[in-house]
Design a protein around this nucleic acid. Structure first.
Lengths: 146, 146
DNA sequence: CAGCAACCTCAAGCTAAGTTCAGGTCAAGC
DNA sequence: GCTTGACCTGAACTTAGCTTGAGGTTGCTG
């Protein structure tokens, strides 16, 4: 009856809506881990459905995989996470969401100033010159108001 | 005195904080356009400083280059944009910002429900199951709550 | 026990938004 | 007239978050 709780990757994919390839990718990145059958096929715990669902949600909140990994690391090792464990995690996500909303709100305020004064696009404009980011970042996609 | 208003790429770079390579890239994408000297060097209009600065700001607000191109297309063709033209643009950006803030706020509300009911990570959870996005997207980076 | 779907690995490809590099040209000062 | 710095093109590399493909194995069903 223990074996009953081990599911193959295809089932996990169907239950979470993820592609099989994505799950394998997450395993590579250490976000989930799987046992193997003698035939080298992955078997996951039923509780990994939750784990993967959490990843999906956290992504929608704008977290990157490294951040998600960090968050997941706060779950208790060894035992299957309880509801309370998951609730703790959600609460800490709410804090991050709050921060993001605040940042956007402050940005909107700056934009309002700029519309008022007509300074939009001038060198000293608050919007793009504060804490100067220009040319700071290197290659890769630019992200939203980090 | 007309010639006086044409600036080389290096100057444009210094004035906007952009890398020279970035400006060339934007020209490729059609976000700015340049004349050429007989020696095949780019000369930009002074007003392109504003244009590029606008791009920088719009990026900080989370717009992608295609969206920015669309926004810039609303500027009047043929003549150098006036302050009023720019102000119209900023106002429409403010609307987009508003939408983004609303979306985040609604998401936060959903998260609160989920913390309350403990449903986080369940299949029918509002947070990741609404308007089902799972597996919808294809390759490339996933973006924040589009 | 045959067949077929589901699984495996590893490598290469995709997008966004650029950067970096190699190899060459232009322009201004001494 | 020569050197130095700014400029040119084109190709290859970067990060994130995966997908796609090639070529091969496993495991359940009839």
């Amino acid at each position: 009856m223990d074996r009953n709780d081990l599911i193959p990757i295809g089932v996990l994919a169907r239950r979470t809506g993820l592609a099989v390839s994505a799950i394998r990718f997450y395993e590579d990145r250490g976000l989930v881990c799987a046992m193997r059958t003698m035939g080298n096929q992955r078997r996951f715990l039923r509780s990994d459905i939750r784990r993967l669902s959490f990843i999906l949600i956290a992504q929608r909140l704008g977290l990157g995989l490294p951040a998600i990994e960090e968050a997941l690391a706060t779950l208790p090792q060894g035992r299957t996470p309880t509801l309370t464990d998951w609730q703790k995690l959600s609460r800490s996500m709410r804090a991050q969401l709050d921060a993001k909303i605040q940042l956007l709100t402050r940005t909107r305020a700056k934009l309002d100033e700029c519309i008022g004064c007509g300074c939009l696009s001038l060198q000293r404009c608050q919007l793009y010159n504060r804490d100067d980011r220009a040319g700071a970042a290197g290659p890769g996609p630019r992200f939203v108001l980090d």
